[in-house]
Amino acid sequence: MIFDFSIVPRYGPALLEGFLITLFICFIGLLLGLFIGGLICWLKIRFPGWGATLANTYIEFFRNTPFLIQVFLLYYVGPVFGISISAMTAGILGLGLYGGAYFAEIYRSGILSVHKGQAEAARALGMGEKSILYRIVIPQMWGLIMAPLTSQIITLVKESAILSVITVQELTFVGQRAISETYNYVEIYTLVAFLYWALVTALANLLKGLENYSTRYLNVRERSPNKLIFMKKQDVKLRS
């Protein structure tokens, strides 16, 4: 089979533009998701009764239904009630709402994983619960959650391809349009895949840097938990 990459100069600029739009919606959607996640997590922890019920309902809806269906609902249900939003807005909102459900649970797991002696020491010194949360618990939470957070962020970026179904002019959409004109499936999908790969790889490296930064205060052994499995049992015990 002969690949015809002469389409690159022809569709390159369009694909690049789609790439930039993907970058844009992912960036805003991600920020929105991280924020919504914080809000949902706060609701769940701060108000164990009604807040937790509300938060759990939210999380259940967005985790237990396909992203594709959520996007359709967002885009097509609005106009029924006279609210019409652009595909781009629906897309960003969709990413934020969907990501937020996952991020909320990641934050919560991190907060619960901070050793309770940490808050106790602060309490014993007369610090208030708010200061304890913001100055003792949350700064340590980041170090604990960066690994799962990274994989969830990467998933979110790749899920943005689904937004092509509601005509967001992002990378996948632009690629599919180019294919419908030229039928160069292999070349164009290869190019699209490469652009996603480049974006996600760059993002993963950035997040790896953030992970290293958020655990900078730990020593080498504590920073590489996967090495624990090669350690002797009594070594692990000493670190408790």
């Binding site: 002696g117 940490q118 020491a121 602060a122 014993a124 010194l125 007369g126 340590q140 205060y217």
Partner: peptide, 28 residues
């Protein structure tokens, strides 16, 4: 207010790992 007048030292130290020694001491 009462806690701030009663110091406590724990078996597991419970120093805050994300703060330097000095910042642990001056935080409260």
């Amino acid at each position: 207010e009462i806690r701030s007048r009663v110091g406590m030292v724990f078996q597991q130290f419970n120093l805050w790992p994300h703060k330097t020694v000095l910042n642990n001491v001056i935080e409260a």
